[in-house]
Amino acid sequence: MQARDPLEMLIEELGDPELQESLEKMVKLVKALNRSGLLDVLLAMADEEVVARLSSMLVTTGTMKLADNIEELTRAAGEVAQALSEPVEPVPLSELVSSLRDPEVLRGLARLLKVLKALGRA
């Protein structure tokens, strides 16, 4: 079997209306990107040193751990946000002590201590 001429294959492809439509859109997109100045920014960013600095800033032990726990964090944040929107009355001291028997409060305190410890380490 003889290898086909790449130019011949390309010309054949160009007859495809779907490709024509895609190319038209692509040209529009590139023009828009150029007008907005975004292409110049991207070209400047494609520099090896910029990529190195950017990735060493974005890909760190901290961000890896953060992203890994994003589901837990957003769930906790959601609960906290909801709790904040609920009306509260000032709690008398006696009630404060009795609420310490609530397992949810105790778990929350235990978590808070862990967070404090992690903050101390950081």
């Binding site: 190195a52 990735s55 060493s56 974005l58 890909v59 760190t60 032990t61 961000t63």
Partner: peptide
């Protein structure tokens, strides 16, 4: 550079 950042992290 991207892989290096990941492997260091």
């Amino acid at each position: 550079p991207i892989f290096r950042a990941y492997f260091n992290a």
